[in-house]
Amino acid sequence: MPDFIPEPDGNFSVWVSQFASQAADWYAKQGVDNPLSVDCLRYLQAWQEAYALHVAAQAAARGATQSKDEARADLEACVRPLAAMLQTDPAMTNAQREVLGVTVRRAGGGRSPAPATAPLVHVNAAERLTHTLRVTDEATPTRTRRPKGTIGAEVRLQLLAPGETFPDDPLKMHYVTIATDGTATTKFTSEHAGKTAAYVLRWIGAKGVPGPWGPVVLATVAA
């Protein structure tokens, strides 16, 4: 014969609350003082308090787990393209890469092919002290989807005063970000208002191998 007491805590809590209360009421109407019924009411109160704390702790744990998972996903999305850049930066030695804890690619290690195409960038400079970049591929200029086998577009920036020209080597320009979803935003301070921002981008392959640089695009920083 199955047990009359429900197994799941939620069902048990509903059932036992009704049982203990109804049993106490019945004995009271009979004029009988049953110590066991009184004890059940006392234990019921302790159970209800403990169960409420348990439910709250479970909800908090689920919320904390979700926050932790989201924070890790954001961090990994930042770390992976940065590691890919450092793996291919000619200024970094393998010894320095080992200190960072990133994969060191030995000679003849079979790197994946470099991206064959270059990214194009459209800069929306209408907002004050802000540039919004829309990145496409030269082979599919109407779509923001990055080419297959790439992790995103490396964005380099150089602010130019009137009459100043941008560096001949894009690697001398300031690194901004890896645009992984076809967009990027650059924020400036008031001292940059009126200056010209020069942008140049290149695709980064899945194993950190860079492709060719795209054309330089100029945009004014709106005051």
Results as ranks from 00 to 15, higher is better:
Ala193Phe: 05
Glu98Arg: 13
Lys187Tyr: 13
Thr130Trp: 02
Thr196Arg: 12
Cys40Glu: 01
Ala84Leu: 15
Val221Cys: 08
Pro35Lys: 10
Gln45Val: 14
Thr220Ile: 14
Glu70Asn: 07
Leu218Thr: 03
Leu133Ala: 12
Gly31Ile: 08
Gly182Ala: 06
Gln87Trp: 06
Gly110Cys: 09
Gln45Cys: 00
Arg202Met: 08
Ala77Val: 02
Lys172Arg: 13
Arg72Val: 15
Ala161His: 13
Gln22Asn: 15
Ile5Asp: 01
Pro147Ser: 07
Glu7Gly: 07
Ile178Met: 15
Gln87His: 01
Leu82His: 04
Gln45His: 04
Ser190Leu: 11
Thr189Val: 15
Gln87Ile: 08
Thr144Gln: 14
Ala126Asp: 08
Ala107Asp: 09
Ile5Glu: 04
Ile151Tyr: 07
Gln45Pro: 01
Leu201Arg: 01
Val55Asp: 04
Val79Thr: 07
Gln66Met: 12
Gly149Ile: 04
Ala83Arg: 07
Asp137Cys: 09
Glu49Met: 03
Arg105Phe: 13
Asp168Thr: 14
Ala24Ser: 09
His122Ser: 11
Val79Leu: 15
Ala59Trp: 00
Thr177Gln: 09
Pro81Phe: 06
Gln158Val: 09
Trp203Ser: 14
Tyr199Met: 08
Thr165Ile: 02
Ala28Met: 08
Lys68Leu: 12
Ala222Lys: 12
Leu171Cys: 01
Val79Glu: 06
Phe12Arg: 06
Tyr175His: 13
Arg80Gln: 11
Asp168Arg: 10
Asp168Ser: 13
Arg145Met: 00
Arg105Cys: 03
Ala179Asp: 06
Leu75Phe: 15
Asp39Pro: 01
Thr130Phe: 04
Phe188His: 10
Asp33Glu: 15
Lys207Thr: 11
Met173Trp: 12
Thr183Arg: 15
Glu191Lys: 13
Ala84Gln: 08
Ala28His: 11
